[in-house]
Design a binder for these strands. Sequence first.
DNA 1: TATCATTGTGGTACCGGTTACACAAAACGT
DNA 2: ACGTTTTGTGTAACCGGTACCACAATGATA
Lengths: 328, 328
Amino acid sequence: MANISDVAKLANVSVATVSRYLNNSGYVGKKSRAQIEEAIKQLNYTPSEVARTLTTKQSDLIGLIIPDINNPFFPELARAVEDTAFRHGYTVILCNSDEDIEKEQHYIKALSKKYVAGLILTTILDQDNYSNNLSIPIVALDRPLNVNIPTVTTDNEKGAKIGTQYLIENGVSNILCISGPKSVTSTNLRLKGFFKAVEGNNVEIHMVESKHDFQTAEQLTYETLQAHPEIDGIFAFSDASAIGALKAAHRLGLKVPEQLQIVGFDGIQMGKVVTPSLTTVAQDIYKLGERATQILIEQIEGKSTNSFSEQIEPQLLIRETTKERGPL
Amino acid sequence: MANISDVAKLANVSVATVSRYLNNSGYVGKKSRAQIEEAIKQLNYTPSEVARTLTTKQSDLIGLIIPDINNPFFPELARAVEDTAFRHGYTVILCNSDEDIEKEQHYIKALSKKYVAGLILTTILDQDNYSNNLSIPIVALDRPLNVNIPTVTTDNEKGAKIGTQYLIENGVSNILCISGPKSVTSTNLRLKGFFKAVEGNNVEIHMVESKHDFQTAEQLTYETLQAHPEIDGIFAFSDASAIGALKAAHRLGLKVPEQLQIVGFDGIQMGKVVTPSLTTVAQDIYKLGERATQILIEQIEGKSTNSFSEQIEPQLLIRETTKERGPL
DNA sequence: TATCATTGTGGTACCGGTTACACAAAACGT
DNA sequence: ACGTTTTGTGTAACCGGTACCACAATGATA
């Protein structure tokens, strides 16, 4: 691969001039410009991003760490981040931490050594250490990280509250709550919302904790439903769990929504395509990813240091797993 | 951030010695070693991957370009690639080309400027140009690229053949074939297999072309099924399409598998969780990703130049969308 | 005409590493 | 005791860019 001095030689100018041409910085005469363009074409030259990064300490890389690529919520989120980043001239490095702290730290380290311009994290670090000893901008997405780090989340408490309330309004009196991992802040906020909605209403509750994953939720729900046939409603903290629960209900021959009503959380595309289609507390996934990226880029480009945390409103999507049917 | 010469100074040795220590190349005395370790600890030093890449022209980055992150097949594939890469000390950069050639080329260019060590492509480039003017190892995954590039695929023709045959054996006489985009090689191979299976058997066929995406397939199937109520079997070229088709069947009140049998292709996790669970021609997704990565790494590390294309056997997973029920 | 801003260009130190080479001290063989 | 090998270390060129500085030519202004 040709380098900048090959170009300079061929164009009969100095590397400095070529560099100026490439970066549109400083003056470049008409004649030189033409020669340089010609040389670049002839040599099929592309500047090395690596060398440039080394001197400028800047890059157009944004690292995105997600915990579980197999939960469709995260690909959809990644899609939004990628779209937005792309539109601003950044390239996204997507890493899958697998809910594994070690793997996550490995990625954070690997990425920061590579001079990513910034990091978007969807993760479980409750310690404050990471924010501080890393000198690049970070934005937390979906799950708050710590007070000093801008965070973009859905109003989880509210979401859980309206989801649960809707179940209760629809006549459910014995709810199974399928929560997510307790280590994650958003789980706890949703728990809070759930309990607020339940409070004072005469409903019985059962709690299980599940990964946001079809299989796990299906198995857990199957067992719980067998042990407690009186359960007539399920509120799941993710659509993935809800869909697993739906499967369990089918296996047990329970009619949804007649015998059992289900409300999920997330609003992934897949919710529309299962049968019956899933009533859910939808997060505005695209907006979530978009805002996180915008905030990060603002920080990277130094345009703003104070665009802090944002909460995005969830919205109840009424579909077919609850009795009071709405539009498809 | 501290750099190598800070470490050298603090340890009272030269940068060369530190470098030798870091890379385990050449001799480093006991005393120096200890001092260096101490200095590194004190300064919290990590070598800059960027600088290293610049001189060595090597990196531990593997670029993976997938066409559609929202089709669960690809996240599962990405997972496999990532796992394998991680185990070998490589980091995966995942890019989503969105089936968009421009975006894809942008990513290929961006990645090659960053000295990725190699590239895994899942893509639609029928032209040969890319293989040649890029000097890094490439492996094509899921879709063959061109003869000079190692390729890891499922035996698509065979897969389509056994899927279709199974449908016919189960008494289907009027098949709707939901193919994928014709621009992709694997689609054409599957078409070939489909036609081979159909040939000579007295079945009627309908063809539609769909993206591998729930919504599109659902809509298309809905329309086709309405126009042709005599259809009693569907073979879809992806599980995503098959699941969309299943939804369409539900909307039309058709009983699956009694009135309509469905076979998908891919073997994604989700197939298990829909109701009824999806009979499908399963690709060995993990193996697909694993082998592609292994072959790429072999090429990167120069261990092998001739480990060429591999085909992986598909396997029919009999579940509930076909009449002859197998194990769950 | 002298002065000064504008335009255009080249030289070169530097970013943070790697590595070839030179050289010294220690260990070894005879 | 002396040549040879092994071990240990430093100097400096280099990777491919960027950017500061110096300097020349041109045009504008006083």
